[in-house]
Design a protein around this nucleic acid. Structure first.
Lengths: 294, 294
DNA sequence: TGCGACGATACCCGCGCGGTATCGAGTGTG
DNA sequence: CACACTCGATACCGCGCGGGTATCGTCGCA
């Protein structure tokens, strides 16, 4: 009568674990769960099938004849089920996912995300396209990438976005700058300086944010490296991540009163490619887990 | 990351339904569910497998190549899974369940329960043992039956019991009895009559209940038929179910102030036979459903 | 007879699943 | 050309199931 009364693979996985360990406690460990729900699940399976699967004696647990038969059947089913994803993937053709990454991402979470995705979808050919700072969407609109692992803010028209993390920002200064020794700075204290900025045509939201709230005059940069060079050589200033470890001769001072910089995942609003969905799901999980333990 | 991310048979059943109907709405009907969760499940499956399974065009739904492959795989898996219960049952040997039924059970729910159980466990050999009224446990203690579908009250020592329903009771009288025309009776109004009773050694709780709260003198009966005969021939009275349709020359008048008669399922407390468990589960479901619509 | 091992039971909680309501896109029609 | 209809997708909600912790009951053993 209940809906939980048809055979399911999960139950069979439980059964196989117990049948192989012949010990509920150890099987539970192997299944990364605790013993009581496992006992219950096996009991429910016995009820469902109308047959006792294990002899529970004080000496230990042994398979009944019915249990032995089910073990064969279950292994066959699980083996076959195991191979289904690979076969479907093969039929779908060489699956490809192109991830756009904003130039400076030495983010350790990106590595963890790449690992996790590779483990989850070994058949997917992931290509990474690193882009400079002049396009926060990493070429999403041009169709150059399927999904962009980038930073905000930018015009989200036609895109779906998902914020993964927020990092405090800081001012990038020469190490011998008079303000270099400060524990923190307000953007106003740098109002009279020249700030590096991005080329004409760059997303205005993006431009404004990285100039401390409003576009300011200064040299044009395209890459992280250029930002550093232009500060070193011109004595300009600019924004970067507060925990950024700068190059020799540069320093970073935390900026106060500014919204933190968000790590954002973006992808086309209408793209039906399910690889994107699973990538997004995984990314959220990985970044959340990372948040949790920090 | 979630636990809901391994392939499950339920999901495959959904997929096969949609693949065969090529229409989400109709597939949902076939699966006895509504369309939105079905759409979600298919989407989740696509995400999980990293492949699009259906082309959703305005013209309708068609399978992709990946979907076609999955359809084959899914059918193979489901076919095999379908046969598992039968094979396990065969290995367990001829499964037998003996149900004890108290003599007078012309209860329609019993029929529905028998049907449901037969549908659910077609391989189980169900034998029914109808017993007289002298043992409310239908021979459970003697091991004559596995489970008793009976009425209370009785001594539950060593048994597990489950109440399924409660029915009002009435007095069984001759149709020409002075009290026969009454709309209802209190047991006290029959205090001076002789009540039929059960033989020496019958469960005391049982004996007392069916004599209106305390054992009263009167002729000894063993079966429902004997009850009727003894009332017809001796002018004795006794208790029966209020909605009982009596034989010619008899009548039933509802009794007030007595606890209703409970339909009770009873089985040995320590019997490991899983057939009993599933029978009990089903019985509860059937009787509950029956309650609901009354 | 106390103790340890181990499966079963009791009870609680969070989330995944299925429900209803609604949207939005695409299409045929007066 | 607007309107209505179809049908899958989305938003949101409530509940039951699956998994958790605590504890029990039983059996073997010192």
């Amino acid at each position: 009568m209940n809906r939980r009364d048809r055979l399911e693979l999960r139950t069979l996985r439980y059964f196989v674990a117990v049948a192989e360990e012949l010990h509920f406690g150890r099987a539970a460990v192997r299944l990364h769960m605790s013993q009581p729900p496992l006992s219950r699940a096996i009991r429910a399976l016995e009820t469902e099938l109308g047959a006792t699967l294990f002899h529970r004696t004080s000496a230990g647990v042994t398979l009944t004849r019915a249990g032995a038969v089910l073990l064969d059947e279950a292994r066959a089913l699980l083996d076959r089920a195991e191979r289904v994803p690979a076969r479907v993937a093969a039929a779908a053709g060489a699956a490809t996912l192109t991830v756009g990454i904003l130039g400076d991402s030495t983010d350790p979470d990106v590595v963890r995300l790449a690992d996790a995705y590779r483990r989850r979808h070994p058949h997917v050919e992931v290509t990474v396209r690193e882009t400079d700072l002049t396009d926060p969407t990493c070429g999403l609109h041009a169709g150059l990438v399927d999904v962009a692992l980038t930073r905000g803010p930018f015009d989200p028209t036609g895109l779906t976005t998902q914020t993964l993390r927020a990092d405090p920002v800081g001012a990038l200064l020469r190490a011998d700058d008079p303000l270099a020794g400060r524990a923190s700075l307000a953007p106003a204290e740098l109002a009279d300086r020249r700030w590096f900025r991005f080329p004409e045509g760059t997303d205005p939201l993006w431009q404004a944010y990285w100039n401390g709230g409003e576009p300011r005059p200064g040299p044009v940069v395209r890459t992280v490296r250029e930002c550093q060079q232009v500060v070193l050589w011109n004595g300009t200033v600019g924004m970067t991540l507060a925990d950024h470890v700068p190059a020799e001769g540069l320093t970073v001072v935390p900026l106060t009163g500014l919204p933190p910089s968000q790590v954002v995942l973006a992808w086309p609003r209408t793209d039906p490619n399910p690889l994107i969905r699973s990538f997004v799901r995984l990314a959220v999980a990985v970044y959340d887990a990372s948040q949790g333990l920090s």
